[in-house]
Design a protein around this nucleic acid. Structure first.
Lengths: 212, 212
DNA sequence: AGTATACCAGAACGTTTGTTCCGTGTCAAG
DNA sequence: CTTGACACGGAACAAACGTTCTGGTATACT
């Protein structure tokens, strides 16, 4: 087994489809997959596609030629150049921000390419409110891209949930013994010290986007 | 005539294909286009597709079902969620940066979505070298997205070509009478004053991207 | 051994689909 | 009026294509 719940055979088929799509910009036919896979029967391909469809690796429009749409790559990552990530609201506004939920449909979303984020797992976006990170070159209105994380290293820029205050802020993260220092990057603002138990890292900032 | 060298009829056909692609993720068949266009003959569609192919609005793989690939929208803008823009090198490095040339293949390129840049005309990217714009929240290594422009308004952030020095820099642009002030956003740096004839605006900054 | 299950081959079937052929009407130039 | 370019319709054709049917082989379980 190569990937998560995908046999080598099926993983190879997904890869075959993937490279075909990148080369031709349109989906392969069942016959074309058969030759590329060195299989002898179209029926075999047909049923494998059925499995992949059941596993939500692709979609097939029944009866339509080349009607398959690849959803995920063999590694489980979403296929395609564009990645849709949820834009979950604003941060540093004092309002609690919900942890991104796969099930709930986000109010807004952002489409990015792999040139911006290569690994899309647990990635979400927030719009920055306020200037508390101005010295880290993050301004009011900027969009920060984060990856969900439970912990952080010293100096990481994180979205931190402060339990006692029921709010989330964008700060630089430092551990001072049993206490946590949340350092704003703005000379006019003071760092926040909290008990380690009181602070929960929600995600790390991995990119910043600003429209001027 | 709606667009550039495209009759209303053909423009409508491009739009039909466009909305179909957005809805289905795979190309429409000739018959489906016929129905959507309320035409009576597939042959008619077939020939219109031939015209669109000649005008490089789309590509057809001959003989393959649903083998058409839409290249441009009815308005002439490139179709698709992802836009490939040239990454033309570094700016503020003292080295002259060539004006983006449609013919020359750029060494590197960047894929973006319309969420980052909506209008792709004359858009290119540069990697920032140096910290001359640090106070405008642009750091060394950041990527700036620019749109080609011949002129700029006061306060615009521009890539400016200084003829007498044969180099390009990223600065804020101000006109002081017959002279032009190129203002770095870094307190330790002095503005550059040049004759208006000596300065040529290459493009305006429309977005900034930073990976952390 | 027998049996169930999954995997596979080969052929056939019926649609879907791109493509072509022939004919018609229109409109403007010669 | 004639000619030719052009837009369009209807039908037919041949290839492409998804799908199904029948049967064969291996592995595992009882």
């Amino acid at each position: 087994m190569g990937s998560i719940g995908l046999t080598d055979h099926l993983a190879r088929m997904v890869t075959v489809i993937e490279v075909y799509l990148r080369k031709h910009d349109h989906a392969p036919s069942v016959e074309e997959i058969r030759v590329a896979m060195n299989m002898a029967s179209k029926d075999h391909v047909h049923r494998d596609l059925g499995k992949l469809e059941a596993m939500e690796y692709l979609t097939r429009a029944r009866g339509v030629a080349r009607g398959l749409v690849l959803l995920r790559c063999a590694d489980g990552q979403p296929f395609g150049d564009v990645i849709t990530i949820p834009l979950l609201g604003r941060i540093a506004a004092g309002l609690p921000i919900p942890v991104p939920d796969e099930r709930a449909e986000p109010e807004d979303s952002l489409e990015l390419t792999r040139d911006i984020v290569s690994d899309t797992r647990g990635v979400y976006a927030l719009r920055v409110k306020g200037t508390s990170m101005i010295d880290a070159l993050i301004n009011d209105g900027d969009i920060v891209i984060l990856r969900r994380a439970q912990s952080a290293d010293n100096g990481d820029m994180v979205a931190a949930w402060i339990k006692s205050e029921q709010q989330t802020t964008l700060k630089r993260f430092f551990v001072d013994g049993k206490r946590v220092r949340l350092q704003p990057e703005n000379q006019t603002m003071e760092p926040i010290y909290r008990d380690a138990d009181d602070v929960e890292v929600q995600g790390k900032v991995i990119a910043v986007i600003r429209h001027v």
